[in-house]
């Protein structure tokens, strides 16, 4: 496959640079949602409803932007995503319903509700909504680094949030008391409970945090990526983010790398499409999932999901 690709013209530096800009742009929403999900899964909550939080974030971002500008939209998107996750958490954590089923219900419900809400507000056949997109912030000096500079340091606020979040979450998870308590809840809720850690509260907060981050990811889609809102525009980003968490081995830096990898695969697919290369380019979209499965099967060394992931607390049947 790669060998045949050599027959296409070798892309120049400008093309490479624009590919990287696109890859990072596509990776940002995945990274935001996956960082949140990392925290949630570390606390033992697998939130399949992430996709729902993303679509709520996209709609919240659009409505917020119309009401008060782009940054108000970003905030509204985060809150909308967090609210969807709160609904999930009330059922799956507080009322101890099955996490997978509850998350699926939240996702399906969210896709329906957001669509209906959008139609009732803007009509079925309305012209595509036009939103003001968030401006890119070009960081002085850093953005001048050849090739990678523009990709990394000429992006909207959401990208910089990712850069801040990765070290911050790594520090919180692995260097602080709160991180230790949160991971204990995800590994062994019994032991955490015995150590005086409030298991339910920790899980609720972690799940809602994942929703806030997924909401930001959704707002990025409507306010940075497209400048509009469309039904189902989350297009599986929430689910992909869960695969990103697995490939990133539940660590913030790994998750960032995995998100860049997924984003890169998607950007490559677009680029090859544009070059009209003689390649079955959709295969590039499948590659990251194949690698995620391989990661789950332990082909890249041992990494295990938190032991208490998706387990109910308090345990049922007692």
């Amino acid at each position: 496959m790669a060998r045949r690709g050599l027959r296409t013209p070798v892309p120049d530096v400008a093309a490479l640079s624009s590919f990287l800009v696109s890859a990072v742009g596509l990776a940002v929403p995945l990274a935001l949602a996956a960082l949140g999900e990392t925290v949630s899964q570390r606390a033992g909550v697998i939130n399949i409803g992430l996709e729902g939080s993303v679509i709520w974030g996209a709609l919240g971002g659009a409505l917020g932007s119309l009401a008060g500008g782009g940054y108000a939209g970003l905030l509204a998107g985060a809150l909308a995503g967090g609210a969807a996750a709160l609904v999930f958490a009330v059922f799956a954590v507080r009322l101890n319903t099955d996490q997978i089923i509850t998350g699926t219900a939240v996702t399906i419900g969210s896709l329906g509700f957001t669509g209906a809400l959008y139609q009732s507000r803007f009509g079925v056949t309305g012209v595509a909504l036009e939103l003001e997109t968030l401006p890119a912030w070009e960081l002085p000096l850093l953005s001048r680094i050849p090739v990678v500079g523009p990709a990394l340091f000429d992006q909207a606020l959401t990208a910089y949030l990712v850069y801040v979040m990765v070290p911050l979450l790594a520090w919180l998870l692995f260097r602080t008391r709160w991180g230790l308590a949160l991971r204990a809840v995800g590994e062994s809720p019994e032991a955490a409970h015995a150590a005086g850690v409030p298991v339910v509260r920790t899980r609720m907060l972690a799940a809602v945090f994942a929703g806030l981050m997924a909401g930001l990811a959704g707002a990025h889609l409507s306010l940075v990526h497209t400048g509009t809102f469309a039904e189902n525009m989350s297009a599986g980003k929430g689910f992909i983010a869960i695969a990103v968490v697995v490939l990133g081995r539940w660590r913030p830096a790994g998750v960032l790398a995995a998100a860049l990898f997924f984003g890169g695969a998607e950007a490559l697919q677009f680029a090859l499409q544009a070059f009209d290369a003689d390649l079955p380019y959709p295969l590039f979209l499948a590659l990251p999932y194949v690698l995620s499965l391989a990661a789950l099967a332990g082909w890249f060394g041992r990494s295990r999901a938190p032991e208490g992931l998706a387990l109910p607390w308090p345990r049922r049947g007692h």
Binding site: T176, L180, E187, S188, A191, H193
Partner: peptide, 21 residues
């Protein structure tokens, strides 16, 4: 035992004791 299996001995002791932090 109410220990977190994947944590080290030190982490398990620290998790339980507020004065570690």
């Amino acid at each position: 035992f109410s220990l977190v299996p994947r944590f080290t001995g030190f982490e398990n002791v620290a998790l339980f004791n507020a004065e570690a932090w």
